[in-house]
Simulated assay, not measured.
Amino acid sequence: MNLSYLILILAATIGGGIIPMTVRRLHPNLPIYLLAFTGAFLFGITIIHLLPEVYHELGHTAGIYILLGFFLQVFLQQLSHGMEHGHTHLPPVQGQHHHVSITPLLAGLSIHAFMEGIPLGLQFTDQSALPSLALGVTAHKIPEALTLMTVMIHAQQPRAALWRILLLFSLVTPLAALLAGQLGHRSVLVTESLVYLTALVIGAFVHISTTIFYESGTRHHELSARKILAFAAGIVLAFLTLIFE
């Protein structure tokens, strides 16, 4: 496991979380276009690199685990209120802030973040898959952390608590990758299990990225020209990752 990938993911998560903590008036369209770009990028990497890998290893049974992963993400979304795709489904506002239970929200998003790190510990046969996946996860972390900290601010969490939440959350994915990589090197059973777990994560990625396509914070789910450009830029960048081969 290349530690530079994990450092990059860590930095992107912290950077994305710092934005709402330091910028008082964030342009409302910035998260929308950022989310559209990163969602398309993650979708492209999933289709181009990850799907061929798991079907090569698991054959037609890969589809079963991908489907399970898709609906696992549907369940996790009930806990995280959809923060993985930047479209929070929070309870109605009461007074000046959302009345939201922090514990299940953080639990759901942390489980998702842990799942994101698991494929980073897999030994891919396609040499371009790992760096491409690392870039996709890195890009996804920015709007994910931005949304998390925005919700925490609206929930009126103290400043010290905001930093603790951000730092702890930023460590989840890198630690999952390290754990998967270390255990995979020591056990053939774990190595084989990582392929099945990666198929589950692919299902979650498909759910998140396609939800971004249809939602991503817009009214009536319309497609503006700028949003289409953001999608196109993400897909083009995903194709450019083929240079890693």
Rank of each mutant, 00 (worst) to 15 (best):
residue 80 S to A: 12
residue 103 T to W: 15
residue 87 H to K: 09
residue 81 H to G: 04
residue 79 L to Y: 13
residue 98 H to P: 07
residue 72 L to W: 05
residue 99 H to F: 07
residue 69 G to C: 02
residue 99 H to P: 00
residue 104 P to L: 07
residue 63 G to E: 03
residue 94 Q to R: 08
residue 105 L to T: 03
residue 125 T to Q: 14
residue 95 G to S: 02
residue 71 F to V: 06
residue 98 H to S: 12
residue 76 L to Q: 00
residue 62 A to I: 03
residue 105 L to R: 01
residue 64 I to Y: 10
residue 91 P to H: 13
residue 91 P to C: 12
residue 111 I to T: 10
residue 72 L to G: 04
residue 117 G to H: 05
residue 110 S to G: 05
residue 98 H to I: 07
residue 58 L to V: 09
residue 71 F to Q: 04
residue 111 I to N: 01
residue 65 Y to G: 02
residue 106 L to E: 04
residue 59 G to W: 08
residue 94 Q to V: 13
residue 73 Q to V: 00
residue 82 G to Q: 09
residue 57 E to L: 13
residue 125 T to M: 15
residue 68 L to N: 03
residue 98 H to L: 04
residue 70 F to C: 01
residue 64 I to V: 09
residue 77 Q to P: 03
residue 106 L to G: 05
residue 59 G to F: 08
residue 74 V to A: 08
residue 104 P to T: 03
residue 67 L to T: 11
residue 59 G to K: 08
residue 55 Y to E: 12
residue 86 G to Y: 04
residue 96 Q to L: 12
residue 54 V to D: 02
residue 101 S to N: 06
residue 96 Q to R: 13
residue 75 F to V: 12
residue 97 H to I: 14
residue 118 I to P: 05
residue 64 I to T: 05
residue 117 G to A: 07
residue 111 I to A: 07
residue 100 V to H: 04
residue 123 Q to V: 15
residue 123 Q to L: 09
residue 125 T to C: 11
residue 109 L to S: 08
residue 54 V to K: 03
residue 70 F to V: 01
residue 123 Q to A: 13
residue 91 P to L: 12
residue 96 Q to F: 04
residue 63 G to T: 11
residue 57 E to P: 04
residue 100 V to G: 09
residue 75 F to W: 14
residue 86 G to W: 04
residue 92 P to R: 09
residue 70 F to A: 01
residue 118 I to T: 15
residue 101 S to T: 09
residue 68 L to C: 08
residue 77 Q to T: 11
residue 87 H to P: 13
residue 112 H to F: 06
residue 116 E to N: 13
residue 126 D to S: 10
residue 84 E to M: 13
residue 85 H to R: 14
residue 82 G to F: 11
residue 103 T to N: 11
residue 95 G to E: 00
residue 89 H to G: 11
residue 63 G to V: 06
residue 93 V to S: 12
residue 98 H to W: 11
residue 98 H to M: 04
residue 100 V to Q: 10
